[in-house]
Design a protein around this nucleic acid. Structure first.
Lengths: 252, 252
DNA sequence: CCCCATTACGTACGGCGTACGTAACTACGA
DNA sequence: TCGTAGTTACGTACGCCGTACGTAATGGGG
C-alpha cells in the first residue's frame, strides 16, 4: 500500500531519507557528483542512469531510491554547480562591480560544465542554491534605486546574457571545424558550402564583412567584458554616455 | 560499393535528389513540415523518426533517404521556421526601427514554435535562411557607423536576448503551476516549499521582494519592449540618456 | 523482539536512433 | 533498345535508453 510516491512533488521538498531500513550505501550528493563528472567528461548525451550506476558500482535501479526521475537528476546537477559560486559575506556596496563579478563567475562555471547551457533551459527552478544566488544578487542591488521587478529583470538579463554568450561561443567552437579559416583544410567540404554561398553574390553585405575581417573574431574576453558593461549601463542611472568605440573588435 | 555517404557533409551541401531511380514520394520539405507540425503540437520530446513517418504514412527508414540523421532534421527545422521572417525589399533606413522589428518577429516565431529555444542552442548554423536573415540585418545596419565585428555582435545580442527572454517566459509559465499565486491551490505542495524557504528567514531580500510584489510580474509586453530598447541604446551613439524609470514594472 | 518501511537490484517492457539487406523502379550509356 | 547502375521504399534487427515492478535483505521503532 505504501509503494512509491507518484512524484507530484518538487525534488527539493522530498527528504533524502526517513530513518528506517538498511543504511543507504550512497547519498543523493554521490549520485549527483557522479552525474556531473560524467557530463563534464563525456558530454551530457553520454549521461544515462546506467552509466551513473556503473560509475558508482551499483545497480541501475538503486539510483531511483535517491532520485525519482532523470529529469530531477538534471535539476540536482544544476543546483550542485550553482553551489560553486563564491559569494562573500557582504556585498561590496558597488552593485556594478558585484554584478560584473557574478557574470564572470557564471561564465567560469559554464566553462567548467559545458552541458549547463543545454540543461538550464529546462531545469532551472527555485533550487536551494538558486535561492542563495538570488538572495545574494538582491543584496548586491540594494544600492540600486529601482523597483523590485526591475532588479529581478536585471538579474535575469545578466544570467541570460552570459548564457547566450557562452552558448554562442561553444556553438561557434563546435562549428569552427567547418569554417574555411579553420586549423586544417582537410574538411574544406563544409566551409566550401559557406564560401560558395557568399561567392554567389546573393549576400553582398555578408561578403563585404568577410572580406574586411576574414580572420577569427576578436578576443572573446574583451567582447564579454564589453557586453556585460553595456548591459549594466542600460540599468545604471549614472552611466555616462559611452562613445561607442568598436576598436576592441577589429584591432585584436 | 556506392553505399550511403559517411555523412561528413553539412546538410545544406547535400543535394535533395540526383535524378536517377524512382520518383521520391516526398520532399525534404514534406518531412521537415511534418516534424515542425509534430513539435508544435506535442512538444519536441514527442518528435521521433517513427512519429514523423507515421504522420507522413510511410516507413520509418524511408525518411533517411531525405535526412541523413535526426540531428540534421533539427537543423532543417530551425531553417524552416527561420523562413517565417518577413523581410521587406529594402531596409527602412532607421536601423533601430528595423532591428526592433526583427526582435518582435523573432519573438513571434518563438511563440509559434516553443521548441525553438531548446533546439537552437545545438542546431544553429549557416543555413540558407540564416544567411538570408544575417544579410538583411547587415543591410539594416548600414546606417550605423560601426565596424563589422560590432554589427555582428549587435545582431547576436538581439537574437540572444530575445531567446533568453522568451525561454525565461516559457520556463516561468511551466513553473507557474507550482507557485503559490497560481490558478488553483490544489498542488500547493510545490509552492509550499518555496514559501517555507522564504519564510525561514534565510532570504530576507527575496522575502521583501515577494512581500512587495506578490502578484504575477508585470506585462511581459512592456518588459520586452523596454529590454530591446535598452539593448539598442547601448549600441546607439545618439542615444539619449534614459532616466531609468521602473514604473512600467510596478504600475501595470 | 519482531514487524515493516526501506534499500538493493535483477528482469523486463516499450520506445528510441539507425545499420543493413532486399526488392522495385527508372534514367542513362551502350 | 536494353541492360545496369544508382535510387527509393521499407522490413528487420541491434543496442541503447528510462523506468515499472517484484523479490530478497536489512535494521530501527513500537
Amino acid at each position: 500500500m505504501a509503494g512509491r510516491a507518484a512524484v507530484p512533488e518538487v525534488i527539493w521538498a522530498r527528504p533524502e531519507r526517513t530513518g528506517r531500513g538498511p543504511k543507504p550505501a550512497y547519498s543523493r550528493r554521490d549520485i549527483v557528483d557522479a552525474a556531473v563528472r560524467i557530463a563534464d567528461a563525456d558530454g551530457i548525451d553520454a549521461l544515462s542512469m546506467r552509466r551513473v550506476a556503473a560509475e558508482l558500482g551499483c545497480g541501475t535501479m538503486s539510483l531511483y531510491n535517491y532520485v525519482p526521475r532523470k529529469e530531477d537528476l538534471y535539476e540536482l546537477m544544476v543546483d550542485a554547480v550553482s553551489g560553486e559560486y563564491e559569494l562573500p559575506e557582504e556585498p561590496s556596496g558597488d552593485w556594478r562591480a558585484d554584478m560584473t563579478g557574478i557574470a564572470y563567475q557564471t561564465r567560469a562555471i559554464m566553462y567548467r560544465h559545458p552541458w549547463l547551457a543545454r540543461v538550464m533551459t529546462t531545469a532551472y527552478g527555485y533550487s536551494p542554491n538558486a535561492l542563495r544566488f538570488l538572495e545574494w544578487c538582491l543584496g548586491c542591488l540594494v544600492p540600486l534605486d529601482a523597483p523590485p521587478g526591475l532588479k529581478m529583470q536585471l538579474i535575469a538579463m545578466v544570467n541570460g546574457t552570459v548564457m547566450a554568450t557562452v552558448a554562442n561561443e561553444q556553438a561557434m567552437a563546435e562549428r569552427a571545424r567547418g569554417l574555411p579559416w579553420s586549423e586544417e583544410e582537410e574538411q574544406a567540404v563544409r566551409g566550401a558550402y559557406l564560401m560558395g554561398q557568399v561567392a554567389s553574390g546573393r549576400y553582398p553585405h555578408l561578403a563585404g564583412l568577410l572580406a574586411e575581417a576574414p580572420a577569427a573574431p576578436a578576443d572573446p574576453e574583451e567582447i564579454f567584458a564589453l557586453i556585460i558593461a553595456r548591459l549594466l549601463d542600460s540599468f545604471d542611472p549614472g552611466a555616462k554616455g559611452q562613445p561607442l568605440s568598436g576598436e576592441p573588435f577589429t584591432e585584436a
